[in-house]
Every structure is written in C-alpha cells, then in structure tokens.
C-alpha cells in the first residue's frame, strides 16, 4: 500500500535577514494591538508556507482572526470546536493519505497544523491532541500559550501561572495570591506519553528565527510533532501592548520559560541565559501579578528554581524553599 509522504525539506533560516518575505497570515484581523498569539501565528504561517492547512480550535485565534465572514488566512483554514483540533486534523491528514494514494489529489502531503490555545491543547482539547499523537498522524500541533482563556475574558487555564489574577482566580482576603495551583507542563505531557512523537520544541515570540526554524523542523519530520509557543497577552497579563516581545524575552531571562528542542529523545537548549534574573523582574511588569506579596513571589521563584534544576540548568538566584503547595 502506497503511503503519502512529505518529501519536503523546508530549509532552516540562518539569519533574520533571510526570513521568507511572503505572508500567509495577512494584515486585517481583529486581534488586540500587540497580540502575542497573532505574532506567533504570523511566524508559524510564514515558516510553513503555501502547502499548508490550518485547523483553528475556538479561542482567541478563532474569534479575533476569523471575524464576520473574513479571515487573515491565505492558506486553507477550518474552524474546529475547542475540544477537537487534534481529531479534525487527524481526519484531514487521513483523507489526504487516502486521496493521494488513490490518485484523487496530486502533489505533496500538505502541512496539517493545529493552532490551538492552551485550553484547546492541554485542557478541554487534551484528549484529541493526545490521540492525534498516539495515532501517528503526520500533523503539527501548536499550542500557542497565552496562559489563560483570554477570548472569554481572561479565565484561568491549566497553564496560567501560580499567583496570576484572572477572572476565575481573583485575589481577595481569603485567597490573597489569586491562583493557588501550579501549571501543567504541556511539552512534558507530550514527551512523556507519546512514543510516536519524535520532535517537540518550545519557542517564544521573542526569538522569531528560532521559532520559525522549529516550525520547519517539525514539518520536515514524518509524523506528529508538537510546539509549545510562549505568546504574551497584553490584555490578559495587563502590560503595555508595546512590551509583548520584551516580556517574552524576560520570561526566558528569568527562567519562567525555557527554550528547548527534544528530538529523538535528546534535549537541546536555546538562548539559555548565562545567569538567570529573579522572576520578580518578569512579574513586576505585569498587572496580573501586582497583588502578590513577597512570600508568593518567593514561592514562584522556588517553583522556577526547581524546574530549572530538573533539566540540569544551574540556578543563579538563591530561593527560599517552597511552601506547602495549595
């Protein structure tokens, strides 16, 4: 039985000057000014190029992009429910496998990319994402992480950081820190339980060449791949919209976000700071953390320190021991 395969080898981008000129996520969308998720969408679409089909689970990148009978997607795009991005992508990929095999479609297997928010990836969308990966569909699942259900008015999601003020975790006298729980770790969820997945990476809008190259590497791999992209949200995190990239960079400089690739079982780290800044530097720019007390910030620092130690990254900032978790 013939199998439709991708023979493409999207070249890696060496210098920022060489990024592709063509846009596949074009101007004319209703995302907020300074939107991190919109920025990552532009970069992912640019890296993927014309032979691409996007599946868009409900979320900001549906509601704010695909508005009132128009979308900014130059390549085919379909809305999916917030629940089923991975499943619909599985169907699209399976259809192309059989249609190419039967000679009903010509050319290369398209890049099938799910562009899901954190909720559509690791909360209500987790089952569909996991199954797509288990079944070895040749598709890229992108989790653009703005760390909340932003489109519905900034409610907490499983990736919302500890201590964040969201509309479901408002701080008050009884719960001074707002969000008491610590977040899920999406790439580790994927790596830990999906043997069919050979490539997983984290990326950030602060490092666009790195991000685009990770998209291309993921698309060059046969089989399911996963990208976890940090995408700051000015509205949800309460910072000035000109600071989206600055905040994203600070996340990496403080260890709040770690850039790495996991390829065939091996980790490689990118843009690792020589010395980490205290998480306070990152948190103080964001209104969602404005209510926190010193003890809460120390707890966050301890959480980050523990995380940085795990993959063998030295911790520069001494941190107090973590308090009992909520």
């Amino acid at each position: 039985m013939a199998v439709a395969v991708k023979t493409q080898n999207l070249p890696l981008i060496k210098k920022i000057r060489n990024i592709p000129r063509e846009e596949y996520y074009v101007p004319g969308h209703r995302t907020c000014a300074g939107c991190g998720p919109a920025l990552q969408y532009k970069l992912v679409a640019k890296a993927a190029g014309p032979n691409t089909i996007f599946l868009g689970p409900t979320g900001c990148m549906y509601v704010a992009n695909a508005s009132y009978l128009c979308t900014p997607y130059r390549v085919p795009w379909m809305h999916t429910q917030i629940t089923n991005g991975g499943a619909v992508a599985s169907g699209v990929e399976a259809a192309y496998q059989v249609l190419i095999r039967k000679g009903k479609r010509e050319g290369e297997l398209p890049n099938v990319i799910v562009m899901a928010g954190d909720g559509g990836s690791v909360d209500i969308g987790l089952q569909a994402m996991s199954a797509m990966m288990y079944r070895n569909h040749d598709a890229l699942f992108v989790c653009y992480d703005n760390e909340a259900y932003a489109n519905t008015g900034i409610q907490t999601s499983p990736t919302t950081p500890y201590g964040a003020n969201t509309t479901f975790t408002p701080p008050g006298p009884a719960i001074p820190e707002g969000k008491k729980l610590f977040p899920k770790d999406p790439p580790q969820l994927v790596i830990g339980g999906h043997p069919a997945v050979k490539y997983v990476a984290t990326a950030s809008v602060a490092y666009p060449v790195d991000l685009m190259n990770k998209v291309r590497k993921a698309l060059n791999v046969q089989g399911p791949t996963f990208l976890h992209i940090h995408a700051p949200c000015p509205k949800g995190w309460k910072f000035n919209e000109s600071k989206t990239v600055e905040i994203a960079k600070l996340a990496i400089q403080t260890g709040m976000w770690i850039l790495y690739e996991w390829e065939n079982g091996e980790y490689k780290y990118q843009h690792k700071p020589r010395e980490y800044k205290p998480v306070r530097e990152y948190m103080k720019l964001q209104g969602r953390f404005a209510h926190l007390q010193e003890a809460h910030i120390a707890k966050m620092q301890a959480f980050v320190d523990a995380k940085l130690k795990a993959p063998g990254i030295p911790v520069a900032v001494p941190a107090p021991p973590p308090r009992a978790q909520a």
């Binding site: 000129r21 101007p27 000014a33 300074g34 939107c35 919109a38 809008v205 000109s242 990239v245």
Partner: peptide, 29 residues
C-alpha cells in the same frame, strides 16, 4: 519580524522598510 499585523515590509529594492498605515494598530512593538 515582530509586527503581529505584518505592517512592516521591505520595499521591492529591499533597501528600506515600508509601513502599512491601513492596518497598523499602533501597538508600537
């Protein structure tokens, strides 16, 4: 690269950047 709305592009000669006033939301990234 950093404009979420793709409102800065190189001109044809690739010696200047060109701003797109029609779509720029003024985020100032």
């Amino acid at each position: 690269v950093y404009c979420p709305d793709a409102c800065w592009q190189l001109n044809e000669a690739e010696d200047e950047v060109v701003w797109n006033a029609k779509y720029c939301k003024g985020c100032l990234i």
